[in-house]
Structures are given as structure tokens and as C-alpha cells.
Amino acid sequence: APHAMGLGFREVACDDPDVEQAALAAVDYLNQHLQNGFRHILNQVDKVKVWFRRPFGVVFELELDTLETTCHVLDPTPLANCSVRQLVEHAVEGDCDFHVLKQDGQFTVIHAQCHSNPDSAEDVRKVCPNCGLLTSFNDSSVVNTVNAALNAFNAQNNGSYFKLVEISRAQNTPPPVSTFVEFVVAATDCTAQGATDPAKCNLLAEKQYGFCKASLVKKLDDEELSVACRVFQKQPQPANPAPAVDQAAPPVPPANPPASLV
């Protein structure tokens, strides 16, 4: 690669093994700090610059392209076992900027900023004219489907009463409109049968989350509700919750690494 002398950084191949290691460490960091939604997987290294750090180490300045997987951030499934959300399912991509320090063979993320975008409706229509499209969480059919599914789940459940924590994904199909939702619930200190006033039910100190998928399919003169929930193991109470990757606020840059690094 041409030594970009004087620029303070070196350009290397985006598929260089070290770059790939840095990119994988960055995506791990992202998934550990996402507070909601679905985990992401590395799809492509768009750009990379390698800055030399005094007295030692290098910083990889990366632009990465990620794709959403079907695993929720609370789902303990190993990322390698998570499927990538396909185009026909209305895929979501992430665009991330990372600075990853490599020192003594270790990769450490020192700057992260990401935002995600769903595929366009036109592109989904191209591959699947009748597939569902992502829709707003406060769409009335979404709210109705989530409430009906949660009530049905609690009615079938003879343990704790579960409360809604997050609507993670919602899609409507073209008419006859059917609604597909994915949402997170958590166990409370009420029993499912005894919860007369859910507002008085509190989440357990030792959180127990569940991930639910539900659909409300319109039939000719009827509608069919189906719901399936996976309840995860109880989570030990966090000593101090991990800092979030704040996708909105500009992250605090560590004293402009490129300049200081040069």
C-alpha cells in the first residue's frame, strides 16, 4: 500500500486480517452496548485508516457496514448462531464509525458512533411484492396486536405476570392487512392469574426477560392471533450498567486521536 507519508496515517486493505479483527472487536462492542433492538453483524469494511500512536500501538479508524440479525440484544444466543435479517424480511443496515486501538495484541474501542436504516420499501417490494413492511410502533394495529398477544401469553401462563418492556419490530402486510410484531416482556412480582391492576406490578429485581413474536392475521370474517414467547434465564443484577453507545449524541472524541496520534 502506498505509504501516505506526511498524512500521518497508512492506508491498508479493508480485508487485511488485522483490520478484520479490529472490525469484529468493534461490532462486539456495539452489541454489548446496544440498549434495545437487535444485534448487528459485520457486513463490510467500507474504509480504514491506520494511525500510529505514540509511544506504541496503532488506531484503526474504521467505517463499517453492519446488518441487523434476528437476535434481540437481550437474547443470549451466540452471535454466530443469529441469522441475518433477509431482504424479504425488510432488512436493516447499520453505518458505524469506530476508532479501535490495537496495543499488545489487544483491540480496544475508543470511539463509536452508529446509526441504522431500514431498507427502502421499494427495494423490499422488488424482491417480494406481498411481504410485510416495517411500520411505526404507534400504529394502531401494532398496539392492538401487542396488547392482544401479551394478554394471551399471560392468560396461558401460570407463573409471573409479564409486562411489556419494548416493542422491537413491527410489520404490516398489504391488504388484507396482517400485523407481525416482536416485543420484549419482563416478569413482575404479580402472578399471571392474580394481576388485577398491572400498574401495581413491578419488574423483579433480578430481571427475567422474554422475547415474543406475535401475529394478527385477518381472515375473511375473523382474525387469528398467534403468539410465541421465549423466556430467558434470570439476569443477575448489574453492578453498574454498561454505558450505552449513544447513537444520537456525538461521542466524546478522545482529544482528536488522529492529530494527537500523529
Binding site: 479493508c14 480485508d15 453483524i41 457486513n43 463490510q44 469494511v45 446488518l67 431482504l87
Partner: peptide, 27 residues
């Protein structure tokens, strides 16, 4: 003896460094 070389030594096409390979698909 004049040896007709081919076109001026075509420079190796610059190895494209980035973007890297697409692991799944592009949106």
C-alpha cells in the same frame, strides 16, 4: 534490432484497497 514493446508498460492496476468484501448483501 528494434523490439516493439507493447503499450507503454501498463501499470499494475492499483490494487483496490477498499471497500472490502461484502459478507452478506448490500442494501
Amino acid at each position: 534490432k528494434v523490439v516493439h514493446s507493447g503499450p507503454a508498460g501498463a501499470a499494475d492496476p492499483a490494487v483496490r484497497l477498499c471497500p472490502g468484501r461484502v459478507r452478506y448483501f448490500r442494501i
